[in-house]
Structures are given as structure tokens and as C-alpha cells.
Nucleic acid binder design. Structure first.
Length: 426
DNA sequence: GCGATCAGTT
DNA sequence: CACAACTGATCGC
């Protein structure tokens, strides 16, 4: 089988078959309603959500994969014309929703997509059994891993615990309206939990209600504000200003579920506070002594960083300990993070390379230590794909010179993979 | 009108 | 540089 015939969450030309793990926007960059580059494989759930995102999509190109069964796909070498068989299985990733396990003459490759691996959850146990059965005695040669939170700083509880924290916050504000920031997809289980625990409906915006119906949730969500005090709103419309505005009408608190805790920082030369996710990975564990953590519920921290806003560590990505456990289970020969190749602070090989092939650690160590050599090598690799995309000729992009160019390139590139492509290509 | 790209948001 | 996921403006066609 030749290189690059299979792409996962990557939509550039040149592959024979394409796989989509889930419908978040950062995995569909380059995919449009006019898709015609080849058959697209995805889970049934994703296929049902497809029309709402890509209305004019040619559905004859869509291939639905049931979870937990092997699918055989014939590929043809463009140069020799010889046939090769690709085997692939979709496995629940507990995100939204699947990872893919591939077998072919290239060996065995596991692509997690975005995933959550909570050790004690019943779902994960099912997933683990399914994965081990599928692998039989095979080794995973390459693991493409969701390394979003692959840093010891990221230590958050299982979603069940975080969901209880949310319920406790709501229950302790019986006379408040509640708004919760969510995206167009994901975190449905959190809302379901709230609804069941508090016996209350949850407001969502009309498009989100459609999505909820497609996902099979009925009678829980509503678009009528009069029916509930709990509203799930688009994350981008969730701000301190929004909350302050709402509080001029009715007492309201906001809850932001995220694996990245938020902190308040004073803005220079300004009396206002500005807030952002804390991203100081270098400094080790996020500290509680900066005064942003004010509540302890169920033994883990919940941030109340503003009069009206709570940050709760509810994440659909695996935390560091879960990533470790997953790598120990899979024991891949090699692996590669699917997120932000430029950031050594979330490089799985840096933390877990010793669990893989023998000489990977030393290779990666040079890179991580930031020797000039290592740094520039990484740059060269990443820009290879994007050398034709330079926008530096535009008058409007003055800022984007020198290092900025490859940073942007890496950001654009940071999802997806061509299976069996030269390993250093993305 | 469309997709690609860019700027900006939480 | 350093989040993920998203919206809206602008550009070229």
C-alpha cells in the first residue's frame, strides 16, 4: 500500500478514502458541502448530524460504520494498480464520538480522534474490551493520540464528578437564573445529568435543539425560556459583560465547563478585569493560592473567578493521568500527538516516550530541550506543507513575519493525519 | 453566492 | 507562540 492513501480528519487531495472522527469544526477544516475527493467514512451518529452542517453534501459518498465491527476496504495503488485491503474498526471515544483502528500491510494504526478515557467509567470498560479484542495479539505500530491535555498540569476529575459539581452550584443558587457555555456539539451528557438531577428542562438555542433531537434527546430540552431557569448558551456569547447585563434584569450566574481552568488577571493600565484560560504549563500544577479558587465541592476545586461566573473542570478530552493509562494499555511502538505539534509541553513522546520504541525518547529529548538545532528542524518539517501558502505578500499581514508564519501554519495543520504518510509530515 | 483565509472571541 | 471551538469580516472568484 502506498503512502497517504488514507486520511483521517484531513481533507486535502490525494487520498483514496477519508475518515471523520467527529463533527467539531477543528476536525472538518477543508471539508465542505461540495466534497468530491472520495468516500468518507464516519459513525452513524456523525452521519445523522451531517446534513445540519453540510446541507448539500453528496450522501452517496458517505459510508456509515457501525461501532465495534471490522470493515474491509479495497484500495488500489495508483502507480502499480495492485490491490490492497484496509481493515478498519470504529471504537467509541466517549467524546463525540469515535476513534479508528486500522490494519493493513502498513501494520496497525490507532487514531484516537478526540477522546476521553475515564478509568472507572462503564463506557471506558466497554471500549477497553472492544479495543483489546480487536487487537488480539497485534501490536499498535503507531498511535495518533489526542494530546490536548498531555501535561501533568492537567489533572481534572471524571465527568461524573464535575457534573455533580455543576448540579451543586445550581442547587445552591435556587433563586438564580443559570447560563452554561457550550459548543454546537458535545457536553450533552452534562446537560442530561443536570436535567435529571434537578428535574428541570434546559433551554437551548433553536439550532442546538435540532441537534439534540438528532442525537435522540427528547423532552429534556426546550427553546421556551419560560419553562426553565437553566439555559445552555453558545460559549462565544458567554462573557462577563453578558453576565453583568443579565444581572441588571434577574440574578444570574454563569457556569463554564472546561478542562482548562479560567483565571482572572488584572489588565495593565486598566481597572477592569480580563479573564482567560490559564496556559502557564511550564510552571507545573496550577496553583490554588492565587485566590481564584474559592469553593471546594466533592473534594476537587471549582473556580469562582468572578462574582457571577464559575469554572468547572468538565472536559471531553482525557486528562494527563488518563492519557498515561491509555498509552500503557495500548503500548504502541510509536506515537504522535494530533494537537499542536509545535508545543513541546503537550508532547506525548516527551512524557511517555519511554513506554514506546527504544530510541524515540532521545530523539524527542533534543527537540524538547529547545536546542537551536532541534527547534529549527521542527520548523522545517512543519513548513514543508505550507510553503505555498505564505500570506506575507499581503499588506494586511505585517505582523505575521518570521516565526509567526510557521506558528500559523502549524495551527492550521494541527489536526488530522495521513495514515502511512512519511511520519514527519504532520 | 461560494470557499478560503484572516481576525477576533471566550 | 503556546486551548478548543467557534463567529464574523474580507478577499478573490
Amino acid at each position: 500500500m502506498e503512502k497517504g492513501l488514507v486520511s483521517v480528519d484531513r481533507w486535502t487531495e490525494g487520498s483514496q478514502v477519508y475518515f471523520l472522527t467527529h463533527l467539531h469544526a477543528d476536525h472538518t477544516q477543508g471539508l465542505t458541502s461540495r466534497w468530491a475527493r472520495g468516500p468518507l467514512f464516519c459513525s452513524r451518529l456523525t452521519s445523522e448530524l451531517f446534513p445540519s452542517k453540510f446541507s448539500d453534501f453528496d450522501f452517496s459518498l458517505l459510508r456509515v460504520m457501525d461501532i465495534g465491527v471490522w470493515h474491509s476496504i479495497s484500495l488500489v495503488s495508483p502507480s502499480s494498480g495492485s490491490q490492497a485491503v484496509l481493515q478498519v474498526m470504529a471504537i467509541d471515544a466517549h467524546h463525540c464520538p469515535v476513534m479508528f483502528l486500522f490494519r493493513g500491510d502498513f501494520g496497525c494504526i490507532l487514531y484516537t480522534g478526540d477522546f476521553r478515557w475515564e478509568a472507572e467509567s462503564k463506557q471506558t470498560k466497554i471500549g477497553r474490551t472492544m479495543l483489546l479484542n480487536a487487537l488480539e495479539d497485534d501490536n499498535v505500530d503507531i498511535l495518533y493520540l489526542d494530546n490536548t491535555y498531555c501535561n501533568p498540569s492537567f489533572d481534572f476529575p471524571p465527568r461524573e464528578v464535575a457534573a455533580k459539581q455543576v448540579v451543586d452550584i445550581i442547587a445552591s443558587h435556587p433563586d438564580h437564573d443559570i447560563i452554561i457555555g457550550i459548543d454546537t456539539l458535545g457536553k450533552e451528557d452534562l446537560l442530561l445529568h443536570i436535567s435529571q438531577a434537578l428535574k428541570i428542562k434546559i433551554w437551548v438555542w433553536p439550532e442546538r435543539l435540532e441537534t439534540m433531537h438528532l442525537l435522540g434527546f427528547h423532552d429534556i430540552f426546550t427553546t421556551k425560556t419560560s419553562l426553565t431557569r437553566v439555559r445552555a448558551v453558545p460559549r462565544y456569547s458567554f462573557s462577563i459583560e453578558t453576565l453583568e447585563g443579565l444581572n441588571t434584569m434577574r440574578p444570574t450566574i454563569g457556569i463554564m465547563p472546561s478542562g482548562l481552568p479560567w483565571v482572572v488577571k488584572p489588565t495593565k493600565g486598566d481597572d477592569n478585569l480580563f479573564y482567560s484560560f490559564s496556559t502557564h504549563l511550564k510552571k507545573g500544577k496550577l496553583s490554588e493560592k492565587d485566590g481564584t479558587w474559592t469553593d471546594k465541592l466533592n473534594g476537587s476545586v471549582v473556580g469562582r473567578f468572578h462574582q457571577y461566573i464559575y469554572s468547572v473542570p468538565y472536559s471531553d478530552h482525557s486528562c494527563f493521568a488518563e492519557i498515561k493509562e491509555f498509552i500503557e494499555l495500548v503500548q504502541p511502538t510509536s506515537m504522535k500527538g494530533i494537537v499542536s505539534a509545535s508545543s513541546c509541553y503537550t508532547d506525548p513522546l516527551y512524557y511517555f516516550g519511554k513506554l514506546c520504541g527504544a530510541n524515540q525518547l532521545s530523539k524527542r529529548f533534543c527537540y524538547k530541550l529547545g536546542s537551536k538545532d532541534g527547534d529549527e528542524r521542527a520548523v522545517a518539517v512543519q513548513t514543508k506543507y505550507y510553503s505555498g501558502h505564505s500570506s506575507s505578500t499581503k499588506a494586511t499581514s505585517k505582523r505575521r513575519r518570521g516565526r509567526m508564519n510557521w506558528v500559523m501554519a502549524v495551527r492550521r495543520a494541527h489536526r488530522g493525519a495521513k495514515i502511512e504518510e512519511n511520519d514527519s509530515s504532520d
